[in-house]
Nucleic acid binder design. Structure first.
Lengths: 130, 130
DNA sequence: TTGTCTGTTATATAATTGATATAACAGTTA
DNA sequence: TAACTGTTATATCAATTATATAACAGACAA
């Protein structure tokens, strides 16, 4: 069951999008797997239908899920989109301030990389950690 | 000279905060160094005084800068705050979705770590890259 | 003392975003 | 026919972002 933090400064629709992506990264969700309807998921999570729809629309734009008008929502059966140049550029822009502050606070390069490694292991093992 | 992207979805005050932190990480700014007054910096950047003030207040809260009522603003002369548990927790929370999507898009663990390494080298060399 | 600079505080406004609430539409399926 | 699907259209409300003025109190120089 997906857990959301309604008190977080991270928007709900963004948390939901991230949870689904993390589910795919951990192989708890695989290509072709169905996702709940916007109304069902909204009710299960106790949030609004449009909030779920917003997350789904973003995932659809990125090619991570497919939405068939009345058939439902599924993880892209053809697999995930590639990490192309535009994605890598965006990734770097988002990583940079995080790494900057870590260095700023005296963390060593190996220490930071070690944390990244640890997080990636957690993700692959499907650790919720929340 | 600090460059801001007024069209970015990242708030201006956050961009400014990040630029200053990056300046410290790259040792272009050092403990004890003075920063411009809120009014001067605002005028130089073509933004509002309160936007600069907001960035300064956040940096002050984190112990990264000191603000003396009429003396001015300086990089914390006693050095940077430590990367304590609460910071590391926050850092992990922010890294996790970025790393998740990278894995999701088929990037390998070494590939991702290699990008992190590259970004950290750029930071240390004071590369603006913008 | 006067003037100017400093950070700070207080309002006010406007645009945008996040989230919710209803309602309706068009196609599918039981 | 009835129930479900994603989608679209409004509307409302709160919070955030950024701006604009204005004033205050302490410091410092002429």
């Amino acid at each position: 069951m997906i857990m959301l933090d309604l008190q977080s400064e991270t928007p709900i629709y963004m948390q939901l999008k991230n949870k689904i992506i993390e589910g795919i990264a951990s192989k708890q969700l695989n290509p072709g797997d169905p996702l709940p309807s916007v109304r069902n998921l909204a009710q299960d999570l106790g949030i609004n239908m449009h909030t779920v729809n917003k997350a789904y629309q973003l995932l659809k734009q990125d090619g991570i899920i497919h939405i068939h008008r009345q058939k439902g929502v599924v993880i892209n059966p053809d697999g995930m989109p590639e990490a192309d140049d535009s994605y890598v550029t965006l990734l770097k822009e988002q990583l940079r301030p995080l790494l900057s502050e870590s260095i700023c606070r005296g963390m060593g390069e190996e220490e930071i990389l070690s944390y990244c490694k640890g997080i990636m292991e957690e993700i692959k093992k499907g650790g919720d950690k929340t």
